[in-house]
Design a protein around this nucleic acid. Sequence first.
DNA 1: CCCATTTAGCTAAAGTCTTTAGGTATATGT
DNA 2: ACATATACCTAAAGACTTTAGCTAAATGGG
Lengths: 192, 192
Amino acid sequence: MARVGLTTERLTRAGAELADEVGFAQVTVSALARRFDVQVASLYSHVKGSAELKTGIALFALAELADRVTEALAGRAGKDALSAFANAYRDYAREHPGRFAAAKHPLDAETAAASAGPRHAQLTRAILRAYDLDEPDETHAVRLLGGVFQGFVTLELAGGFAHSSPDARQSWDWAIEALDALLRNHATTDGE
Amino acid sequence: MARVGLTTERLTRAGAELADEVGFAQVTVSALARRFDVQVASLYSHVKGSAELKTGIALFALAELADRVTEALAGRAGKDALSAFANAYRDYAREHPGRFAAAKHPLDAETAAASAGPRHAQLTRAILRAYDLDEPDETHAVRLLGGVFQGFVTLELAGGFAHSSPDARQSWDWAIEALDALLRNHATTDGE
DNA sequence: CCCATTTAGCTAAAGTCTTTAGGTATATGT
DNA sequence: ACATATACCTAAAGACTTTAGCTAAATGGG
């Protein structure tokens, strides 16, 4: 009966790895049990069920991504920071497609509020400080950037840009450049 | 044994409605059978299985969305067209969240090529013509717009902007305005 | 050190969904 | 009217989820 040492922590982590390998949608309590060479029902001592497992992975991915972005942002500002943020985001999605999918998993309001989601918004605001936008423009910009990063990378991963030139990387750099210009244009202008 | 008149067509359509009601992920052959008051196995004469049903719904949604956009675009150009496109897209997602989710369902390369996906790209290019961008800038812009629309609306539907002001609509209008300015700035400049 | 308690992981079982195989009754056309 | 095609059925096997109750391994106090 040799104990394997299951914990909620380890299961969530292994679930994230499994997601990267087979896709977030294919993450299943059964598959996870197989991975630990343990009976399915045994997992139910550590995880309430399939739904909780998935939101656990989502929270993990959200936090990990926020950490990555935080690290990438250290000591940078302005366009340099914007570019670092964007690339950290895209790189994470490409390295960990399953976790990235997990990060998009819908959370109920309460869980979302306690997640790293708000931290993502704060990180974006930190970048925008350099562009000196008035409210509510800064909020609009937070949402625009969130949308662009999320949407562009999702389309790229889905293969939407495959088989057509130029390659996605160039469009990504172009987009960052364009967003930087856009934000500079919208900086507070005293005259208006 | 009264025949109900199942067809692949009707099943896909009903699947799309079901998706809007319970979520695309919850669309299941069994649920669809219940909806028609028919034995589950009966559906297998019309649909190869769960996977095919879902890609069918995805193709349906993609085409329907392209139709909506086409209609919205009729007789418009420039910023007016950009705004009409964007709003048709967002309105569709809000009216039909399940179909919108379906439209994001990953398709294999061959299916994607035969889908309305390329039509979406063409529609975007039609709008961009007014902005007179050189290649490869136009392609970059197609991808940027695709990403923004997809990403922003996804975040909004997921509740990412809920419980915070200003409301999503205003950020959306602001984003369209900003993108219009961005594209005008990038128009071909003979001098460079 | 051993016994009591906790608990990690087990077996059993019921419910749902998917999918295949083969049967029956309803349309359709000659 | 009858033969053919087919729309929908029953039956059954396999996978995943979840609950209930059991057993044996760890842990700690006397």
